[in-house]
Amino acid sequence: TRVETATETAWISLVTALHLVLGLNAVLGLLLLRWQFPAHYRRLRHALW
């Protein structure tokens, strides 16, 4: 059971790390998009709101 718990903890930390990386990538991607295409982003925002 100790090995199972260790594997579980490893999986949880792995999934958490993946989520963090994906979240960071999403934020960075959005920031890059805003920086690269400000006009396009503004138009998109007007369409959404």
Rank of each mutant, 00 (worst) to 15 (best):
T1Y: 15
T1R: 11
T1G: 07
T1K: 12
R2H: 14
R2S: 13
R2C: 09
R2K: 13
R2T: 15
V3N: 05
V3Q: 11
V3C: 03
V3A: 02
V3F: 08
V3T: 08
E4M: 07
E4C: 09
E4D: 12
E4N: 08
E4T: 12
E4L: 10
E4G: 03
E4H: 09
T5H: 01
T5C: 08
T5L: 10
T5S: 07
T5N: 03
A6M: 06
T7Y: 11
T7C: 04
T7I: 11
T7S: 15
T7E: 07
T7M: 15
T7A: 15
E8V: 07
E8T: 02
E8H: 03
E8F: 02
E8S: 06
T9K: 07
T9I: 12
T9S: 12
T9V: 13
T9A: 13
A10D: 06
A10M: 00
A10T: 06
A10G: 11
W11R: 08
W11F: 11
W11E: 00
W11P: 03
W11V: 11
W11A: 02
W11C: 03
I12E: 09
I12K: 09
I12H: 09
I12V: 13
I12D: 00
I12G: 03
I12P: 01
I12F: 07
I12Q: 05
S13C: 15
S13K: 02
S13E: 01
L14F: 05
L14W: 07
L14N: 05
L14H: 08
L14P: 00
L14A: 08
L14C: 09
L14R: 03
L14S: 02
L14Q: 02
L14V: 05
V15T: 04
V15S: 05
V15L: 12
V15D: 09
V15R: 01
V15K: 05
V15F: 11
V15H: 06
T16K: 01
T16H: 02
T16Y: 08
T16F: 04
T16W: 03
T16A: 08
T16L: 09
T16M: 09
T16S: 07
T16R: 06
T16D: 10
A17H: 00
A17M: 09
A17S: 07
A17F: 09
A17Q: 00
A17W: 00
A17I: 11
L18H: 06
L18C: 00
L18I: 02
L18F: 12
L18M: 09
L18P: 10
H19Y: 15
H19P: 00
H19G: 15
H19C: 15
H19Q: 04
H19S: 15
H19E: 05
L20T: 09
L20K: 03
L20Y: 08
L20M: 14
L20F: 13
L20V: 13
L20C: 11
L20I: 13
V21E: 10
V21L: 14
V21F: 10
V21M: 14
V21W: 01
V21A: 15
L22D: 09
L22C: 14
L22M: 15
L22Y: 08
L22S: 07
L22R: 07
L22V: 14
G23H: 01
G23S: 09
G23M: 15
G23K: 01
G23V: 14
G23E: 01
L24G: 06
L24A: 12
L24T: 07
L24R: 03
L24P: 08
L24D: 07
L24K: 01
N25L: 04
N25D: 08
N25A: 03
N25G: 09
N25P: 09
A26Q: 07
A26T: 08
A26K: 01
A26D: 07
A26W: 10
V27A: 08
V27E: 06
V27S: 04
V27R: 04
V27Q: 02
V27Y: 10
L28D: 03
L28S: 04
L28C: 13
L28P: 04
L28R: 02
L28Q: 08
L28F: 12
L28H: 10
L28M: 13
L28A: 06
G29M: 15
G29D: 02
L30H: 03
L30Y: 09
L30F: 13
L30P: 04
L31T: 10
L31Y: 09
L31A: 12
L31G: 07
L31V: 08
L31Q: 04
L31E: 03
L32G: 03
L32I: 11
L32P: 05
L33N: 06
L33D: 04
L33Q: 04
L33K: 03
L33S: 02
L33R: 02
L33T: 04
L33Y: 09
L33V: 07
R34D: 10
R34P: 03
R34I: 05
R34A: 04
R34N: 05
R34V: 09
R34Q: 06
R34E: 02
W35F: 14
W35P: 05
W35S: 15
W35C: 11
W35V: 14
W35N: 15
W35R: 15
W35K: 15
W35I: 15
Q36T: 14
Q36S: 13
Q36A: 15
Q36E: 03
Q36N: 06
F37Q: 00
F37E: 05
P38S: 08
P38L: 09
P38Q: 10
P38N: 13
P38V: 07
P38F: 04
P38D: 12
P38T: 06
P38E: 08
A39M: 12
A39E: 12
A39P: 02
A39V: 12
A39Q: 12
A39D: 15
A39N: 14
H40E: 09
H40R: 08
H40V: 09
H40W: 13
H40S: 09
H40I: 08
H40Q: 12
H40Y: 08
Y41D: 00
Y41I: 10
Y41F: 15
Y41H: 04
Y41C: 13
Y41A: 13
Y41W: 15
Y41Q: 05
R42K: 11
R42C: 04
R42P: 01
R42Y: 12
R42E: 13
R42W: 04
R42G: 11
R43L: 04
R43W: 04
R43A: 03
R43D: 02
R43N: 02
R43Y: 01
R43V: 06
R43H: 10
R43Q: 10
L44K: 06
R45E: 08
R45L: 09
R45H: 00
R45W: 06
R45P: 02
R45Y: 04
R45S: 09
H46F: 08
H46P: 11
H46L: 04
H46T: 13
H46E: 12
H46Q: 14
A47N: 00
A47L: 13
A47K: 07
A47P: 07
A47Y: 12
A47W: 14
L48I: 13
L48C: 13
L48H: 00
L48F: 11
L48N: 00
L48D: 00
L48P: 04
L48S: 02
W49K: 04
W49Q: 00
W49F: 09
W49M: 00
W49P: 00
